[in-house]
Amino acid sequence: MSVPLYQAKAEFFRMLGHPVRIRVLELLQEGPRPVRELLAAIEVEPSGLSQQLAVLRRSGIVTAVREGSTVVYELAGGDVADLMKAARRILTEMLAGQGELLAELREAEVAAR
């Protein structure tokens, strides 16, 4: 029995739902990076980063290549970078709307005094 598409999408977004995974994907938008660079850019224990990278690798969102003793990660495809950019645009619009609401509330508070 196959999983309904909406459930598969929910699982996909749940998989993305960790701050370290999101940060890794943001960093990998700039190009492939060795684990040591990811560790330097993300304040997390090496074991924690390894765990989150494994989740991303198993999902197929990132790939890993060993170069000598170094493991280099990169995005598996451009669609992930597009998704991260879309998320940034959506979040920016949401926050802009909240800023407008906050300004209205402050104006109303001043007017009530």
Rank of each mutant, 00 (worst) to 15 (best):
P34F: 05
L53N: 00
P46A: 00
L27H: 01
R57H: 15
L53M: 06
E30H: 12
P46K: 00
I22D: 08
Q29K: 15
A54I: 12
S47H: 14
L27Y: 06
S47P: 08
S50P: 09
L53T: 06
R36N: 11
P34C: 07
L28P: 04
P46V: 00
S47W: 13
A41H: 02
S50D: 12
M15K: 08
R36H: 15
A40G: 08
V35A: 12
R14M: 09
R33C: 09
V24I: 10
R21H: 01
I22S: 08
V55Q: 11
A41N: 06
R21C: 05
R14P: 04
L16Q: 00
I42T: 07
R33L: 12
A40M: 12
P34L: 09
R36T: 14
V35C: 11
L38P: 02
P32G: 05
L28S: 00
A40H: 07
M15E: 10
F13T: 14
S50T: 13
P34H: 09
R33W: 05
G48L: 10
G17R: 09
L27S: 03
A40K: 12
Q51F: 13
R21D: 04
R57F: 14
I42L: 07
V24C: 02
G48V: 06
Q51E: 15
Q52Y: 02
V44D: 04
E45M: 14
L16F: 00
L38F: 06
R36C: 10
R58Y: 12
A40D: 11
Q51P: 13
R14W: 11
Q29Y: 01
R23P: 03
L39H: 08
P34I: 04
E37S: 13
L56N: 03
P46H: 01
V24F: 05
V24M: 02
P19F: 03
A41L: 08
Q51N: 14
Q29E: 14
L27W: 02
P32Y: 03
E37T: 13
G31A: 04
G48E: 09
F12C: 04
I42H: 00
G48K: 10
P46D: 00
L16S: 02
L53D: 02
V55I: 15
H18P: 03
F12W: 11
G31D: 01
F12I: 07
G31E: 04
I22R: 13
R57M: 13
G17S: 11
E45V: 13
R58E: 15
L38V: 07
H18F: 06
Q52R: 12
R33Q: 10
R33H: 04
R21E: 04
R57C: 09
V35M: 12
V20M: 08
E37N: 13
M15L: 15
L28T: 05
G48R: 10
E45K: 14
I42A: 04
S50A: 14
L16P: 00
P19G: 03
Q29P: 04
H18C: 03
V20L: 10
V44L: 11
S47A: 12
S59V: 08
I42E: 03
L38C: 02
E43W: 06
I42F: 09
P32C: 03
A40S: 14
E43F: 08
R58T: 13
A41Y: 02
E37K: 14
A40W: 10
E26C: 05
